[in-house]
Design a protein around this nucleic acid. Structure first.
Length: 936
RNA sequence: GCCCGGGUGGCGGAAUUGGUAGACGCGCUGGAUUCAAAAUCCAGUACUGCAAGGUGUGCGGGUUCGAUUCCCGCCCCGGGUACCA
């Protein structure tokens, strides 16, 4: 019987599904292991061969862990809210839910074909009301909390209110945006609106007017990580700054913990560094400069307090609140013009003109806190209003931008560094000694830093401070296809709908576009008001602002649902809680997370933030979601090209010979081994129907190729479906792993897939005789076969532990090659081989397992073979003998021979004497079991 | 600019973390089998040289008995990031 992979794979997929083989119970008696893939957004394009790469790796690992006796949680779901479905809806009028469902069906079908061992009974979809009910609930918890910096955790807002009632906010240490200090008496005098306005400045989910990245083309705001070089991540549309009233998340409160938490995670340095940079902690100090007229004071933030005597001017952001009052009449016109011009610049313009130095003197001066000298005040848009204090002390000798600015505007450049030349640029290195700086003179930079901060604090003109680049995260989107907020507005104040009435389901709308008066799409909904008596969503006509109120029109961003989905898998059908304490205490956090590195500063940061928050409230017992993470590389496409000559003929690649040609992408399905199917090409498009060719000598047309990202427009997309049809899922799984290290990006090339397919056929033959009948021998295997087997057990095990899946495949090939040569048909060897291979190639191994007479469908729940080193003991070793490091010959010697004996033996050899050519060896290096080196 | 990766045959990639560079697969060459093809099997395949040999892991140095591996200085490619004070 031949290896009929189609029949075999169909059979086992059905068996697994019918018997729910991979359904996992919360078996508290067994040790747990949680293997998770980043869940996909189900796009209309379906999966290409790049998508399953990570899923295959995680599936192999999950199956391996099961064989090792772990209770493995290995779920899958869909991040099913998102922009593409909504834009498709705008174009076609089709409800995003419909398209999303269709896409999910296609994804599921494609994933099923690969033979993954997901427990589909735990599937989650973020757009499912049963799911987003809890996303809304978590939002309401964030709304109900503030961050207490004394306890260093999130605490219920009631406790803050109690403190306000007791003593105002004088003693409160919390992360907040509140710039006023009030007493208990004042607090009790505030009305409800005033009180809530203040509370908003403390809540972890809060409403605030903030500068946001507004994308007019998409009609929505975007988070910082959704903006790349001033353009939207999706669609590359321009983004501008706009002041809007938006929901935000006070992620800043967690900056320090998000930074420190990275230490204990088993992630790549690259991702950790990206998060560190994004969080952007910088230590320094604030310094207050009094203005010359002593009417105002300007606070700056600096990381170089040691250079305070090098200050020659201050620069304020054009948006700085004091600019207006500090500008003298003489300069007001110029200053206003400068402010106007810079406000028109989008973030993108500002970035594009980084080299352009611009600024404006505003006519007044500050006073240097130590020297009492006058310091010019300037505005310049290289200073950002949103970072630090929105003002900097400029030290041209120590900072290149300040140096450029000073040079450009002809401002004095003081040198406060000992024997450093600053005529051609600033001295930015933190080394050397400080000069001409009063009490700092003669100190090293680091000593001077400490001394300066100490003095500044003594004089009460500032204090040591830590700044973070991390901004609070905007949480409102002007979209339809996202989670609605459980929020209604009463007298302009947001009120949270009680958890027992959740979910608040997305309303039906006629159009998915913003309303004519610029409200978000939910503004089109007819039934979108909250009845506080009946506690339900009712028609807008009932709004009386007495008992029925308008609901929030924004929806939540894409990262809301993906920030906690890994928890829901543990308890996906729980209607009473987002996850039960018992289950989350058993499964804990994800042991192995596999996904792309493009989520470094988005999803991975937000998920960590929400995890820490839920930990603070003691809903979960761990504060990092993903212990170990592997980022699979991108699989690139291999595009094929035909070349058109100016005369319209198509010339084969090797016949171009430097002629002027236009390369044209051709669909890779028409190309086999770079050879073009000419008929298919002619039939592809009408304008190619009469194409003429200049062919190779053998009459074929050879295409050129290039490695590029896979995309429809380049006709280089390879879907898994057609490969599975042609070679089977087991072949595809092993081939994707064989391509190279998981983390590396690599070009997709179908050429080698035949080699992997041959391997499986060869494996099949190992279990059968020449006539194709099953042939399993029950007598004792040879020592040689046992050696092959145990060598393989050892290698496969270490490869799996190192996630080196590509070398794993090689080692299987070596093993099967050796066993074939040994004509090994022994039960004991083949049984273990099947177990070893089953994580990689589950279908063929289930089939052979069953044929060998073992229980059907049990192979993934048996036990992984254990390595026995006894079988590998060698009696002899073939020593490479080198002279001055160059290997000249090898010699077979007993493995237990002593160093001295080896040395003697080698020296006595004729070959050695020949190599020595009459010279005396200076020295001999003998590494037992490794190498012999003779130094001449 | 800065921060992470990476550079090994015609190609994808191996190499116990200082010990025989190029495993495994693809491709290619030759052969067996076949009426023929497919499939399968065997042999060869870093470069150079008739050969002995010589040269080879981006480039230039260094440490070492011995370096793809460690150190110093460059070059190139990929990813991230930036008037962040």
């Amino acid at each position: 019987m031949e290896y009929d992979f189609r029949e075999i794979e169909r059979k086992w997929r059905k068996f697994w599904a019918d018997n729910q083989v991979f359904k996992v119970e919360d078996n508290l008696a067994k040790p747990k292991y949680y293997v998770l893939d980043m869940f996909p957004y189900p796009s209309g394009a379906g999966l290409h061969v790049g998508h399953p790469l990570g899923y295959i790796a995680s599936d192999i690992y999950a199956r391996y862990k099961r064989l090792k006796g772990f209770n493995v949680l290995h779920p899958m779901g869909y991040d099913s809210f998102g922009l593409p479905a909504e834009q498709y809806a705008i174009q076609t009028g089709q409800h995003p839910e419909e398209t999303t469902k269709e896409n999910i069906l296609r994804y599921r079908d494609q994933m099923d074909q690969v033979g993954f061992s997901f427990d589909w009974s735990r599937e989650v979809r973020t757009s499912n009301p049963d799911y987003y009910k809890w996303t809304q609930w978590i939002f309401s918890q964030l709304f109900d909390c503030y961050y207490d910096e004394n306890q260093n955790k999130a605490v219920r807002i009631n406790q803050l209110i109690a403190e306000f009632n007791r003593a105002g906010n004088v003693n409160v240490k919390a992360t907040h945006d509140c710039d006023r200090v009030f007493s208990a008496q004042e607090w009790s005098g505030f009305n409800a609106t005033q009180k809530e306005a203040i509370l908003q400045q403390y809540r972890l989910a809060f409403l605030a007017d903030s500068w946001v990245n507004w994308c007019p083309a998409l009609g929505t705001v975007l988070a910082n990580d959704e903006v790349i070089n001033g353009l939207s991540e999706r669609g590359s549309h321009p983004v501008e700054q706009k002041l809007m009233r938006q929901w935000s998340m006070r992620i800043k409160a967690y900056a320090e913990r998000l930074l420190n938490g990275l230490e204990k995670l088993d992630w790549t340095d690259s991702i950790k560094d990206q998060q560190r940079n994004w969080i952007g902690k910088s230590q320094g100090c604030s310094v207050i400069f009094e203005t010359e007229d002593q009417q105002n004071s300007i606070e700056v933030f600096t990381t170089r307090p040691d250079t305070i005597f090098g200050v020659s001017f201050l620069v304020l952001a054009p948006e700085h609140p004091l600019v207006k009052s500090l500008t003298t009449a003489e300069f007001s016109e110029k200053a206003e013009e400068y402010i106007r011009v810079s406000s028109l610049k989008t973030e993108r313009d500002r970035q594009a003109n980084v080299k352009n130095i611009s600024g404006q003197f505003i006519g007044s001066y500050a006073v240097h806190p130590f020297t009492g000298e006058k310091v010019e005040l300037w505005i310049g848009d290289y200073v950002l209003a949103s970072y630090g204090t929105g003002a900097v002390m400029a030290v041209p000798c120590g900072d290149q931008r300040d140096w450029d600015f000073a040079r450009h505007f002809n401002i004095e450049i003081k040198n406060i560094f000992e024997s450093v030349d600053i005529s051609e640029g600033a001295h930015t290195e933190k080394e050397g000694k400080i000069a001409a700086s009063d009490f700092l003179t003669g100190m090293t930079v680091s000593d001077a830093m400490n001394a300066a901060i100490q003095k500044i604090e003594e004089k009460q003109i500032g204090k040591g401070k830590t700044n973070f680049r991390l901004r609070d995260a905007v949480f409102s989107r002007q979209r339809y296809w996202g989670e609605p907020f459980p929020v209604y507005y009463k007298e302009g104040l947001p009120h949270i709908i009680d958890a027992k009435y959740l979910p608040i389901e997305l309303p039906e709308v006629e159009k998915y576009l913003p309303t004519e008066d610029g409200k978000p799409p939910l503004g089109n909904a007819q039934v979108w008001a909250w009845d506080t008596v009946d506690n339900q969503v009712v028609d807008n006509i009932n709004i009386d602002n007495q008992t029925v109120f308008p609901l929030e029109l924004n929806t939540m961003p894409g990262w809301a649902g993906s920030s906690w989905y890994f928890l829901r898998y543990m308890d996906p059908h729980n209607h009473a809680e987002f996850v039960s304490k018992e289950k989350v205490d058993y499964w804990k956090n994800v042991d192995l997370y596999i996904g792309g590195s493009e989520h470094a500063t988005g999803h991975l940061l937000y998920a960590r933030f929400w995890t820490k928050f839920l930990y603070d409230l003691e809903y979960i017992s761990f504060d990092e979601p993903f212990q170990k993470m592997i980022n699979q590389g991108m699989i690139l496409g291999r595009s094929s090209f035909v070349y058109r000559l100016p005369n319209g003929k198509y010339v084969s690649y090797n016949q171009i010979n430097g002629q002027d040609v236009v390369p044209i992408h051709v669909d890779i399905s028409m190309v086999d081994n770079d050879k073009l199917d000419i008929e298919a090409f002619k039939n592809w498009r009408s304008d190619y129907a009469n194409a003429e060719f200049i062919l190779e000598e053998d009459g074929s047309y050879i295409c050129g190729h290039e490695v590029e990202k896979m995309s429809k427009s380049k006709f280089n997309v390879q879907t898994p479906d057609e490969l599975i049809e042609k070679f089977g899922a087991d072949t595809l799984r092993m081939y994707e792993m064989f391509l190279g290290p998981l983390e590396q990006s690599k070009p997709w090339d179908t050429k080698g897939i035949g080699g992997v397919h041959n391997f499986l056929r060869k494996l099949w033959r190992l279990f059968h005789d020449q006539e194709g009948n099953l042939m399993i021998l029950d007598d004792a295997p040879s020592a040689e076969s046992l050696k092959t087997l145990h060598k393989t057990i050892q290698k496969i095990t270490t490869d799996l532990e190192k996630f080196s899946f590509n070398t794993g495949v090689s080692n299987f090939m070596i093993c099967v090659n050796e066993l074939t040569e040994q004509k090994c048909h022994h039960r004991l060897v083949l049984r273990d081989l099947l177990l070893l291979l089953s994580p990689y190639a589950p279908h063929i191994t289930e089939e052979l397992w069953e044929k060998m007479g073992y229980e059907s469908g049990s192979i993934n729940f048996t036990a992984f073979p254990t390595f026995n080193p006894e079988y590998l003991v060698e009696s002899a070793f073939s020593y490479p003998v080198s002279f001055n490091g160059k290997v000249r010959f090898t010699v077979e010697l007993p493995a237990d021979m002593s160093k001295e004996d080896i040395e003697k033996h080698i020296l006595g050899l004729e070959q050695t004497q020949k190599q020595l050519d009459g010279n005396q060896p200076k020295k001999m290096i003998v590494v037992p079991g490794r190498i012999v080196n003779v130094v001449v």
